[in-house]
Nucleic acid binder design. Structure first.
Length: 733
DNA sequence: CTTGCGGCCTTTTTT
DNA sequence: AGGCCGCAAG
């Protein structure tokens, strides 16, 4: 406390400037590996210790729970426990906290529940079916993204401008009904958390004034990932007068596809008064070979704010490029190589294998398993998103709130108890007619005798089950309630009877849920100071599960190789990194390769991948890959060509000479070429060809060998065509 | 009501 | 290939 300048020790000039800048709006453009988190943490310490702000007056917002946790941990390590009152959290957890505290002003039931996107989708599917809407024209996923999109733009159904468009009108109608269903069930989706809390503040000037006064400084991490709603939320909360420190990197914006607006960085600079911009350009993570390669790659993007990373570190080894014969060979190379590195003394946890899409992990996993290499995989289904867990949670929600239609529908016949779609449909219809919840409709139907016979008996049994469970729960600890529920509902038995490992894993997961609940009540996660009156442990647990779905990662302490998508690697670093599947169509993904904007996002994703590596980077691709059950010829990614040769080194199999990668002919193209035979032209994927009838085109795909081989060619104006090499007169251009 | 078969589609993911 | 969905048979 005495010597606040100690906070500035070991910082470079730019970092020091960012940490100790006088209070005012500041934009920190922080390149990969430039000490971003460090600056953020030190900045908070500075604000409190040098500027004299109360910890209560500081709000720090992140995107992920992981980032929030890391920031808090580092803050506490730096300054001690006096900082535990700093508000650090994700946008969603902070919004949740506001809504829990001010549920009445937010016009929410006290025990509202948060639904995740999976629940949301189910609910939408139900609505579409219920209203006899053509799900071909209105695919549930599209409706879901429409609704989320509206909320992210801060729009309520009546605010959407339909322009007399019938299609849009129907969408809005569905949005409206969806919202009504949520209101009736006391359900709040992720977008709603933010929108509702924004409206709460906007419509309650006294409340807004309170929070504007309370927070003296607001800090935001990963600003390039904010969406329109989050931007508006910050604008409202700060009133553009509370000073803000925002940290971001436009080159690492990889979430445009889910609403993130990179422009928010520029907008902030423009709209918030007297914004000071600081660039952190010195990289402390990677060798210069890796960093220069990344710089060269990203320079191919046009839309940039301009920033060039440099490092004082050594050049290091060149980036190794391996061209596998097929995906199995690629995996074999990765695993062999990493085993060599491990033998040299590298810890397995220091090695990461990154890929564009989850489907790629399978082959690599199989190879790792075969060779007995322990690995840990991030992503895929998180614990609280698994089917069996969601079923158990749905029962628990029903205990708290019988009117939660989504949960009721989820488990009314799980495990199967003779309540089929017909019966559920009848229930839905009655609920709709009476404008009541499904539970209410069920009850009324049993009372007035409309639901009888076999279905009636089954429904009665279900209703009794829920009520009994509720009664039994009185006086029990949280984990005992859950234990009781999974046993009494038959969920445990249901999965035990499932054959194979899958059922076994599900049973274990259910048991793990009980353990998690025990830990939850005993741990400090359950201190929820502002969780509101009468908040039960169960309620808090359910919120935690919805908001914090990914916490469960097994074997955290075993030294294992890390597997994850490029997206989930953001923010992490590893001494040794493999990026697999660096191929056209996969990376950049074909869904994104067409549009320039989306291609640039793919390139940023590649940039993120490259800059994860500290010492050694491997880029691998396969010439033939099994994709969706079919063998496809792949050609090397354009991103490989965008990295100057001088940083690359092609890996050849043992005994072969290694030669530099040439820019004109990317690795492996020769091998991946379709050789039509001696008298046929030698063609390669991606090559431009000319056809006497169709004109000029590009080879997209190929299958078979010899004269009967077929190639798929994309002709300008003629579209894609499959041609047999022996007949089609194709001339290479 | 349950089960099994065939057709369809296939990024990325946090909250 | 594999998961999901809808449909038809048991």
């Amino acid at each position: 406390m005495d010597d606040v300048t100690a906070i500035l020790d070991h910082l470079n000039a730019a970092q020091r400037e960012a940490v100790s800048a006088p209070q005012g709006n500041m934009l920190v453009l922080a390149g990969a590996g430039s000490g971003k988190t460090r600056v953020l943490v030190q900045r908070i310490a500075w604000l409190i210790q040098a500027e004299g702000l109360s910890p209560y007056a500081v709000l720090a917002v992140t995107f992920t729970n992981k980032a929030a946790r890391e920031m808090r941990t580092r803050l506490e390590a730096l300054v001690g426990t006096s900082l535990r009152h700093v508000w650090v959290g994700t946008f969603h957890s902070i919004a949740h906290r506001l809504l829990r505290t001010h549920w009445q002003d937010a016009r929410l039931p006290q025990h509202f529940q948060i639904i995740d996107s999976d629940d949301q989708l189910r609910l939408i599917k139900r609505l579409i079916r219920e209203n006899d809407i053509d799900d071909e024209r209105f695919p549930p996923r599209q409706v879901q993204s429409f609704i989320s999109g509206c909320k992210e733009e801060g729009l309520r159904p009546h605010q959407v401008n339909v322009h007399g468009d019938a299609y849009l009108g129907q969408m809005v109608e569905l949005f409206d009904r969806y919202q009504l269903t949520c209101e009736r069930g006391g359900l709040v989706d992720f977008g709603e958390l933010l929108l509702r809390s924004l409206e709460l503040l906007r419509d309650n000037p006294a409340l807004l004034a309170h929070y504007q006064q309370r927070f003296a400084h607001v800090l935001v991490d990963e600003f390039q990932d904010t969406n329109t709603l989050q931007y508006a939320w910050l604008k409202l909360l700060t009133g553009m007068t509370t000073p803000m420190t925002v940290v971001g990197d436009d080159d690492q914006s990889i979430y445009g596809w889910r609403g993130a607006r990179v422009e928010n960085i520029r907008r902030f600079e423009r709209e918030f008064p007297q914004t000071k911009t600081v660039r952190l350009e010195q990289n402390y993570r990677s060798t210069s070979a890796i960093l220069e390669a990344a710089n060269a790659l990203i320079s191919h993007n046009a839309e940039r704010m301009g920033k060039t990373l440099w490092t004082a570190g050594e050049r290091g080894e060149p980036i190794s490029v391996y061209s596998g014969f097929n995906d199995l060979d690629e995996a074999r190379f990765i695993v062999d190589t990493l085993r060599e590195r491990v033998e040299e003394g590298v810890n397995r946890r220091e090695i990461a294998i990154l890929y564009r899409s989850n489907a790629q992990s399978r082959v690599i996993e199989e190879t790792l398993i075969r060779q007995g290499v322990p690995y840990r995989i991030y992503g895929g289904h998180r614990f609280y998103e698994r089917l069996e867990i969601k079923n158990a949670l749905a029962y628990l929600r029903l205990l708290l709130n019988r009117d939660d239609d989504a949960s009721l529908e989820r488990v009314i016949n799980v495990p199967a108890r003779g309540i089929g779609t017909r019966t559920v449909e009848l229930l839905r219809q009655r609920a709709r007619e009476g404008s009541v919840s499904l539970w209410q409709a069920l009850h009324d139907g049993l009372v007035d005798g409309a639901l009888k016979g076999r279905a009636g008996t089954a429904l009665q049994a279900f209703a009794d089950l829920i009520d009994t469970l509720d009664n039994d729960g009185a006086g029990l600890a949280l984990h005992e309630i859950i234990d009781h529920v999974i046993a009494r509902t038959g969920l445990l038995e249901h999965h035990r009877n499932e054959r194979g490992e899958k059922g076994q894993a599900r049973v274990e997961n259910l048991e793990e849920l009980v353990t998690a609940a025990r830990a939850f009540t005993q741990g400090d996660a359950f201190d929820a100071p502002e969780a509101g009156e009468g908040a039960t442990a169960l309620e808090a647990f359910l919120s935690e599960a919805a908001l914090n779905a990914g916490e469960h990662e097994a074997d955290e302490f075993e030294d294992s190789v890390q597997l994850m998508t490029l997206h989930s690697a953001k923010g992490l670093e590893f001494p040794v990194v493999f990026i697999a599947g660096v191929e056209e169509g996969l990376f950049p993904h074909r869904m994104s390769a067409e549009e320039p904007g989306r291609l640039e996002e793919e390139r940023r994703l590649c940039y993120v991948g490259l800059t994860r590596a500290m010492r050694k980077l491997y880029l691998t691709h396969a010439e033939i890959r099994r994709l969706h059950g079919k063998e496809t010829f792949q050609r090397a990614s354009r991103f490989l060509r965008e990295i100057p040769e001088e940083y690359l080194e092609e890996v050849r199999l043992r005994g072969q000479v290694s030669r530099p990668v040439t820019a004109s002919r990317p690795t492996g193209l020769r091998q991946s070429g379709v050789n039509g035979g001696d008298d046929l032209p030698s063609l390669s994927l991606g090559q431009r060809v000319s056809h006497p009838v169709f004109g000029e085109g590009v080879i997209l795909n190929a299958e078979g060998e010899g004269p009967r081989a077929r190639v798929q060619v994309s002709f300008a104006g003629e579209g894609d065509k499959w041609l047999v090499l022996g007949f089609a007169k194709l001339t290479p251009l």
